[in-house]
């Protein structure tokens, strides 16, 4: 439970492609090197072997670089994930402060969180092991303390905040980019 932190699907398919590529590269390299070694056994060194040695080293360097690239990409993604987690942690704190200022009871806070996550009354009742009527009463109390008309307005109160934060963040990022490129 809580706020799942996931990366966009687009960002996650790249490492998989890269890792598959590394595996293919390694298989190709081994077969090539084995074939070349077998040839060296039977034929003398020559211009041909120089070429083969060159191709071999290119293959091996390619593997090393791809592994480094994969390592770097994974680390980058981990850092982004952590930044997102921090951001969503901030958001959770913002929600908690709002709940504080509305002086919600402990039960109301839990119900409020579940309502924000998009659970309907039946689901909340099930999760908390209470009657649906109880949950309905708690929600009504939350909405009146928050001075909103109902669930949609309650959610949009927080979504607006989230969107304005996202806008700020993307501004920060565009400001950061020239710096990163220069360094």
């Amino acid at each position: 439970m809580g706020w799942p932190v996931t990366l966009p699907a687009k960002g996650r398919s790249f490492p998989i492609a890269l890792a598959s590529f590394i595996v293919l590269q390694a298989v190709a390299a081994l077969f090539f090197v084995a074939d070349v070694t077998a040839d060296l056994w039977t034929t003398a060194l020559g211009a041909h072997s120089v070429l083969e040695a060159l191709v071999t080293s290119v293959l091996l360097i390619g593997i090393v670089l791809s592994v480094a690239q994969l390592r770097w990409t994974l680390r980058e993604m981990e850092m982004q994930g952590r930044a997102l987690e921090v951001a969503s942690g901030d958001f959770v704190r913002f929600i908690e402060r709002q709940f504080d200022s509305w002086s919600l009871t402990d039960a109301e806070r839990d119900v409020g969180f579940l309502a924000l996550k998009g659970c309907d009354i039946r689901e909340i009742a099930e999760l908390r092991g209470r009657a649906a009527g109880t949950i309905r009463a708690q929600l009504a109390s939350i909405y009146s303390k928050a001075n909103v008309a109902g669930h949609p307005q309650f959610v949009s109160y927080f979504v607006e905040e989230l969107l304005s934060r996202a806008a700020e963040r993307s501004q920060d990022q565009t400001e950061d980019q020239p710096k990163a490129a220069a360094s």
Binding site: M1, G2, S20, V23, L74, R109, D110
Partner: peptide, 27 residues
């Protein structure tokens, strides 16, 4: 507020989800 701060699966320490792509492909 424990409800909001525990990660998915209810544990802070857990094997990676998902495992990194090289581990998955080699497996």
């Amino acid at each position: 507020m424990s409800l909001a701060t525990t990660k998915r699966g209810g544990a802070e320490i857990a094997p990676p989800d998902p495992w990194d792509p090289l581990v998955r492909i080699t497996h």
